[in-house]
Design a protein around this nucleic acid. Structure first.
Length: 115
RNA sequence: CGAAGGCGAAUGGUCCAGGCGAAGCCUGGGGAGGAAAGUCCGGACUCCACAGGGCAGGCCGCUCGCCGCAAGGCGAGAAAGAGCGAUCUUUGGAAAGUGCCACAGAGAAGAGACCGCCAGCGGCCCAAGCUCCGCCAGACUUCGUCUGGACUGUUCGCCUUGGCCAGCCGUAGGCUGGCCAAGAUGAGCAGUCAAACGGAGCUUGGGCCCGGCAAGGGUGAAACGGUGGGGUAAGAGCCCACCGCCCCGCUCGUGAGAGUCGGGGGCACGGCAAACCCCGGCCGGAGCAAGACCAAGUAGGGGCACACGGGGGCCGUAAGGCCCCCUAAGGGUGGCCCGCCCGAUGUGCCCGGGUAGGUCGCAUCAGAGAGAUGGCCCUCACCGGGGCUUCCCCGGCACAGAAUCCGGCUUAUGCUCCUCUUCUUUUU
RNA sequence: GCUCCCAUCGUCUAGUGGCCCAGGACGCUGGUCUCUCAAGCCGGAAACAGGGGUUCGAAUCCCCUUGGGAGCG
């Protein structure tokens, strides 16, 4: 099985973002806000990231994005059939890499049970 | 993540052929920085109907040389300042003009006289002494001579000091008014004693006014040369010597500047230009979300208004600067003027409608287009700590990440290496 | 990414080189008033984002840093 993060797995167009913000559901916890939409013809999940400059300088935001993307790639069983837009909150910048991974997996599990 | 290559063939355009060729899959060279950062200066590039001259504005500023369009950098120097020193910091013009220099202080820019010092001349007042005249009293040696002409009390006015009270402003405290006490002084009245004062001149001392001085005190961030001598009523570059300063010349240096040089000048010329400004150099404006092309879509939309374009005073050809009135006077030249250009066209306002896609710009092998360059493990090197020390264990390794590119500046930073020098300590 | 703007008591602000160890309002706080609270009256604390420079003197002028905010086809 491939763990690539192909272009099809990314939310890219402005209209897709607008649709998910408009029609999606919202999950919130201490570290993330996640907008998500369940797709009825089952398709691979897609991910969009939105990080405010308030979280830190460019290298800090890059680290958070990489860890979230990595977690998304490694857990297709949690993200299938979902379009996600993840907004990390400013508390996420204080987490270590390992903590960030764990918290995001926990968030995805909570999100699945919330359906 | 990905240039490139291979497999792949949907779909599109064409009458046909030929050719182009998306997604997906495979291989895959290569893949963050010295600051990629801040966006503080520049440049390339693109557009702005854009050939030129200017106004305004911006940036830069010791000298010479080199590199550069420029910003800036490098090297060698100059002056001033800091430091024991190595070294570091600063840099056009204040004698073109305008402006500012609070408070304090006498005076803040061709300044000033508060305290202070002062001879002579001058004016006024007071005190003391002497001389003279008149007046009074007494004594005596009787045409006159000698001696003396003061003190005390009280009333009123004014001044000073102290105390108390009231009002006002206030942190202290101050101002105004009233009362009391003391002192000084002027006028009136009274008393004592033998008697109860007037004038003129000179000298000395004191006070005030007019006047001379700018040495000293004091204020300030800053006070219009310093030291010594002469000089004077007291003083002063008033004069002199030395030091300092300014100007001119000469010499040296390409120059900023320098000189134990020569001459002149008694000396004036304070600070601020990161205040306006002046001088010199450079710059047209905006910015890759610039801009170009393709596709789709709309409409070659409708209505109303406007049509050479203000006036006056001073400097200037004009922009511009200062002041006033009237008001919104085609548009473009992307701050403005001249000039130039457009004009069945342009602008302003109102109403209505459409797009939010793609490609290029966009990279000399980093390069996307919701934005890659990552995580974990192993090994080695380095740094710190510890231990059972040819080894082992634990921890650490910064600042921070391209989005058109390039040149600088500034700021943030861990470790390693190299070169030169100073100071301190120790040893010799 | 590019181009700009702003920062003064807890909040809103005044200030445009010296009169400012920074003024005002609301809020906070101590006292007074009241049976109590509020209002009123009297008083107090509280700020120039940070650093460096120019100047005799900086909230103000210049530079750097930090933190907020706005615009763009």
């Amino acid at each position: 099985m491939s763990f690539k993060f192909s272009r099809a797995q990314r939310i890219r167009s402005r209209s897709d973002f607008a649709y998910i913000y408009e029609h999606g559901q919202l999950y919130k916890d201490e570290f993330f806000r996640v907008f998500y939409v369940r797709k009825h013809p089952p398709e691979p999940g897609r991910l969009g990231l939105s990080i405010s400059k308030k979280l830190g300088k460019a290298h800090v935001r890059n680290r958070i994005k990489r860890i979230i993307r990595e977690t998304f790639r490694l857990h297709p069983e949690l993200t299938g059939r979902l379009d996600l837009i993840v907004q990390p909150r400013s508390t996420a910048a204080t987490l270590s890499n390992e903590q960030l991974r764990q918290r995001f997996v926990e968030a995805l599990i909570a999100l699945r049970e919330n359906r």
